[in-house]
């Protein structure tokens, strides 16, 4: 059962990822990204990371992806021409990607991994919260400062300029 679920979610994720690569239109790519992200959330559930799965959905799907689609809608419309690099560069890119994939897979095959622990770890969410505000307090605070900086920076960058008003 675990194997079947893994292959289903992995297939969903891969279909989405390949869709992002191949999609003709940028909004189609965004939808494929949604598929990939949903598959990833399923994989997180399989890996006992329930909180992470839900957070993935809230932040990526509900936040980042909506932002991306919003950005696409602001900057393009139906029938915008395809923005891709030429065939030669595409070939180089695909070769790079596949070469990297081959290298990583070879490395994985030749590595001996520890056998997985069979246990289900209880109360993951609570422990996650404790470690966020315990061991990882400083990174947590830095991340919040970063968010503040991002908020101000984004508002500054996207503000209306005097010349736009005129």
């Amino acid at each position: 059962m675990a194997a079947a679920l893994f292959y289903i979610f992995a297939a969903i994720t891969l279909v989405g990822a390949i869709g992002v690569v191949m999609a003709k239109h940028i909004v189609h790519a965004a939808v494929q990204l949604l598929v990939a992200l949903l598959g990833m959330a399923g994989l997180y559930f399989l890996l006992d990371a329930e909180f992470l799965a839900a957070a993935q959905l809230v932040i990526y799907v509900g936040g980042t992806l909506v932002l991306i689609i919003f950005g696409v809608m602001l900057t393009s419309h139906l029938g915008t021409r395809l923005m891709r690099v030429g065939p030669g560069e595409t070939a180089i890119a695909v070769l790079t990607g596949l070469g990297l994939l081959a290298a990583i897979v070879t490395a994985i095959i030749h590595t001996r991994f520890p056998t997985p622990p069979p246990s289900v770890e209880p109360d993951v969410t609570r422990r996650l919260g404790v470690s966020l505000l315990g061991d990882y307090l400083v990174p947590f605070e830095i991340a919040s400062v970063l968010m503040l900086a991002v908020m101000i920076g984004a508002a500054y960058l996207a503000r209306r300029r005097p010349k736009d008003a005129a």
């Binding site: 939808v31 329930e50 509900g62 909506v66 969410t125």
Partner: peptide, 26 residues
């Protein structure tokens, strides 16, 4: 057994938004 069901509801309703946005765009 879903220990994060509150977050789950919030998360899954976030997906609905994308449907609405795509409906409008397409």
């Amino acid at each position: 057994t879903l220990s994060v069901s509150l977050l789950w509801v919030l998360a899954i309703l976030g997906v609905e938004v994308i449907g609405v946005i795509l409906a409008g765009w397409s």
